[in-house]
Computed example of a mutant assay.
Amino acid sequence: MEDFINEILGDDLEIVEIVDFNDFIFVFFQPKGYSNPYKDERLNLVSSSGPLKINTKTMEYEFTHIYEFYSEYGDNEIIFPKKDEVAVDWSEVLYNIKMRERFNSEDFFLLLKNYNLPLDSFDIYSINSQDTIEIEIKHDEAIDYLIEFLEKNNGNYIKKRINHFLIQLDI
């Protein structure tokens, strides 16, 4: 099975964890050489696209979308065992973004967490996961926080509409 998974993931991605749940296997992965700047191992579980989902009976597979995955399995203790909450050090998050000169999708989740905004405040669409993401904001209070966050980090963005942003990941 691991050879099959590695064939799907290719040479640029590595397996972080495999979870067998009902008739599915969820493969959590990350880019090879990825360094988790937040010291929170839970962030290693989910990439920006979500885990690879394999039907163990048919061997059909799909890369899940992160928000759909969280909404369906986010409270599942088999996939996400309960762990002690790791406090977000917002100044460390900002420092790490500036040091790597790049935003990660996790940074936007941490933004929501830092300001106690609901996780569904943003809909993030990956246009080209290497270069650009598109964010649609559902809660008005999140707009100001996003703009402040981007400007504090010299983020390059286009405001398509009042609640719709196109963000360049490299800064």
Score class of each variant (00 low, 15 high):
F4I: 02
F69P: 00
K53R: 14
N55Y: 09
N153P: 05
F122P: 04
I54N: 05
D3L: 09
F69M: 05
L119P: 13
L119W: 15
Y145T: 08
P81T: 02
F103Q: 00
F69S: 00
M59N: 13
E60W: 11
I8W: 00
M59R: 13
L112P: 02
E2W: 05
S105E: 12
K159C: 05
Y38P: 08
L146H: 04
V88P: 01
E2P: 04
F4S: 03
Q130M: 11
I25R: 07
F21Q: 15
K53C: 09
L13N: 11
I54V: 08
K138G: 08
F108E: 01
F109N: 04
K152W: 13
K160P: 06
I147W: 05
N156L: 04
E60N: 15
N6A: 04
I143C: 02
I127L: 13
P51C: 05
F80A: 06
V16D: 05
N128W: 13
N154I: 07
H139C: 10
E141N: 15
I25Q: 10
I78L: 08
R42L: 14
F165P: 00
K160H: 09
E101K: 11
W90V: 03
E85C: 11
I8C: 02
F21G: 14
K57S: 13
N55I: 02
E148D: 12
K113H: 10
N76Y: 04
I171K: 06
E77F: 07
E68Q: 10
E151H: 08
F26T: 00
E136Q: 11
I171T: 05
F149Y: 08
D23F: 09
T58A: 05
Y70P: 02
V93S: 00
I66M: 11
W90H: 03
M59S: 10
N116I: 10
K57V: 08
K32E: 08
D140M: 05
D131E: 15
D131C: 12
F69R: 02
K39T: 13
I162K: 15
Y70S: 01
E62P: 09
S105H: 14
E148P: 08
L112H: 01
P81N: 02
V88R: 00
I15T: 04
S126D: 13
I5F: 01
F149D: 03
I133P: 00
Y61L: 03
E68F: 09
L150W: 01
D12K: 11
E106T: 14
I8G: 00
W90T: 00
I147M: 10
T58I: 07
L150F: 02
G155T: 04
V46F: 04
H164Y: 13
P118L: 04
G155K: 01
E41D: 14
F109I: 13
Y115S: 05
D3W: 09
E68M: 10
Y125M: 11
D11L: 04
D107P: 01
H65N: 12
D75M: 14
N76D: 06
D123P: 07
G50M: 00
G10Q: 06
S105Q: 06
K83Y: 11
L150G: 03
E14A: 09
I171S: 04
K98N: 11
L112D: 01
I78A: 07
H65L: 12
S48G: 15
I5G: 01
E7Y: 10
E60T: 13
Y125I: 11
N22V: 13
Y34A: 06
I137N: 03
M1E: 15
D89F: 06
Y145F: 07
L166T: 03
F165E: 01
K113W: 05
F103P: 00
N36L: 01
